[in-house]
Design a protein around this nucleic acid. Structure first.
Lengths: 209, 209
DNA sequence: GGATCGTTTTGCAGTGACTGCAACTTTGCA
DNA sequence: TGCAAAGTTGCAGTCACTGCAAAACGATCC
């Protein structure tokens, strides 16, 4: 292999993965998610069906383009943050970094995903179905960083909150993209940060308390 | 039908649903979740496979025993709470009420579920895969109560936090049930309430725990 | 105690996601 | 060039899940 850059093999894998992801999203946007079979997707990406499943555990995952490197990368970032940064901040920053990266590299894909999610919001929940392993990884990183025992709820909650923030932000964004997705995710995370009980919604009306 | 109590029909439906739920959990605990087929479950509950799918959209859902009445019931409770109660409190209380009810009525089932989840923690995430509709319902209730516009992130986030709290609490509990599940859920919700950034984890630093 | 109507159950046939396995091809490296 | 490791493919098989139309069942009216 080349000394620093990726090997040919690695480059090919990346390309195949990207092609499958793109094919999934494109076809789903065009014909509706469940009118697309894995067979079609594989054909469009010019690989066999079996290969599709070598890259993604499920059709759902391919739609979101879950990348196995994301978890480890975020964990690393969390552990690498300077000492004076709180675990919350470290996690928050790693999420935001990941998102802005993603949006910079694949904004077009997200626009297509938006089409799909507008019609089938439930797919987003389902897409997280296989993320248990990643969550565990991140929770461990947060826990180590915070010096908390294995059994503590906090790391798990923080990570779950991250997923939730992302999920909600995307759902909201798919409905109306007048606010940038990145900003929505940040807002969501910050609400979790300051506490949902403290939020004094800017509501006039209703409870008139 | 009887004027007030349930009709025979309704009673039978409840019994069938309960039997299917129980069969799923029992068999999964005994033989491992994916060594159990829907066919076996249906047989154990003494109904046809087709009937299984009349009650549950998926095997996953049957494991958790997702009840279609839960969502509406919680929504009602949220809207019925007195005016001086904040949206957060109203939601929090509805979650806790639901949980304690559930634990009082089906503690034995939860002990079996614990067996299953100890071996396959990912199943819990998956079990929420089809909850998009319920989440929407609850979010609407919260939103109405808080007098927020459709597009506001807050209701969605609050509801997602509820799911997350429940998920994390159960996961934690499955690992070590020295704290009651109900208490764990409450703790988790309260952490979301006060804010994840504010948490001063009781850590004494250093990995040497 | 039927006749009737709406609801639930069931069987059946079909689709398609997903898996294990055992060739086969491609890439990395000496 | 040649060998080992990694990736790809086809194939056969399992099983979750769906639509449909017939049958069984419960509620209601006479």
């Amino acid at each position: 292999m080349n000394q620093l850059g990726e090997s040919l093999r690695d480059r090919k894998k990346r390309r195949t993965r990207a092609a499958l992801e793109r094919a999934t999203v494109r076809l789903a946007a065009e014909k509706g998610y469940d009118h697309v079979t894995v067979e079609e997707i594989a054909a469009e990406a010019d690989v066999s069906v079996r290969t599709f499943f070598n890259y993604f555990v499920s059709k759902d995952e391919a739609l979101i383009g879950a990348d196995p490197e994301t978890g480890p990368r975020m964990a690393e970032r969390i552990l690498a943050a300077p000492d004076e940064v709180t675990p919350f901040q470290a996690y928050r920053d790693s999420v935001l970094a990941e998102i802005t990266d993603e949006l910079n590299n694949a904004r077009d894909l997200w626009l297509l995903r938006k089409e799909v999610l507008m019609q089938r919001p439930d797919l987003l929940v389902r897409a997280f179905a296989n993320s248990a392993e990643s969550e565990q990884l991140l929770a461990n990183a947060v826990g180590r960083r915070a010096g908390l025992p294995e059994s503590d709820l906090y790391p798990r909650l923080l990570v779950a909150a991250g997923s939730a923030a992302f999920r909600c932000a995307v759902t909201r964004w798919a409905l109306d993209d007048s606010v940038a997705l990145g900003d929505l995710v940040r807002d969501a995370l910050d609400l979790f940060g300051t506490g949902l009980a403290h939020v004094p919604p800017h509501h006039h009306e209703g409870g008139s308390s």
